[in-house]
Design a protein around this nucleic acid. Sequence first.
DNA 1: AGTTCCCGCCAATAT
DNA 2: ATATTGGCGGGAACT
Length: 444
Amino acid sequence: MLMAMAASSSSVAEVAVAAAAAAAMESALPQHQQQEARPRPMLAGGGAAKSRHHAYSRKEKSLGLLCSNFMVLYDRDDVESIGLDEAAKSLGVERRRIYDIVNVLESVGILVRKAKNRYTWIGFDGVPMALRELKERALREKSGLAPLQTEQQSASTMSDDEDDDKLGNPDGDIENEKLSQTMDNPSDKPGAPRCRLRSDHRKEKSLGLLTQNFVKLFLTMEVDTISLDEAAKLLLGEGHEETNMRTKVRRLYDIANVLSSLNLIEKIQQGDTRKPAFRWLGRAAKPSTENSVTVAVPPPGKSVSNKRAFGTDITNTDMLRSNLHSKIQKKAKLGERGDILKNCKVAVQSRLGQGKNNGFVYGPFHPAGARKHELDGGNKPGQRERAEDWESLSVSFRPQYQNQALGDLFAHYVEAWKTWYSEFAQGSNSMQQHLGQSVVNHFL
DNA sequence: AGTTCCCGCCAATAT
DNA sequence: ATATTGGCGGGAACT
């Protein structure tokens, strides 16, 4: 009976903010929901007042939604550290679920583990670099190792750790680094220091690693659409126990859901009447300052965007954001406090900021609804060449390089977007089209 | 009936 | 030892 409390009780300090946001959204947006089932990206609040004794709805407990809430709660520029306990409590979920979220977020560069029970917030700014590294690694191992994939359940030729990122701290006094992620066995066994630990099965099957591999798949694949079954088959050997496959697919569903809520992928119906698949959205739409504030390339041929994408729901996720504008218009003067972490964040930001001002926007908070409309709006129907993306842009970045002014500039970019965003949230949702233009103006 | 995937048991790991 | 992390798969909600 001790456990039964987690789900129903919630309402903590933080929730108050979100609650206010909810109220705001209510008034700002006409009750225009078509479906009865809407995955409200609201904090779990055990039905503060209204909600009809909803029976049990799985949707409300989905990882994707949880991830959206997580982002709403922490995607702020004054967040730097996140405690798992507070997260779990604030979001009204059991700790176990936080682990799920956090693991995939880390794989994509939004977070980094700082210590036990503690993560450092990076934000979407960390995504481009993470993806770039993933791709590099993927290409490397594709060409370098294992030209031929044995269809056996052999020792996976996975590269070990991925988190190197030496926080370029010039002459600074960073002493917080006490964690040497390098997991190497102390005093290797007699013989050869070779070989991977044979008992690392835990790690090799981790959600985080699976996420990375899943993403790598997209990054290296020629087509950017893939079904989970295919993915599972690819990520796994060839022939496999039925049960292993099933489990793997389960995990892929989990991952796909949170990646969806981050708008890194999107669920679509392949062809028609075929199994759903996922499409990669991490590619930039168009670097030019033209239209296309919205994301992504037009869907290939006849794929229809599925409605069951968590963060992709126009409903209220976006609106939540609007109420946080109070802090948004704060000056955001960086380098103020002698906060090391903050500086690190800035560093990361400046390094990758360029990759992100291209029109693609991560996160569950962008007007996803505009995505569809954009197509018929004013998009050239021609062929879509691979517009350049983050990777090429980020190669120009130098590790050592640290420019305060530049970082500042990009910070403003972010601010500008946020401002625009809140405006959008305020206004009617039918003016998405030309709002697209205005956002560009804000940027210039 | 098949798909999607939440829940939470309980085993690795860390402290 | 206790506390954290987090595989894993049963089985229920949702097509």
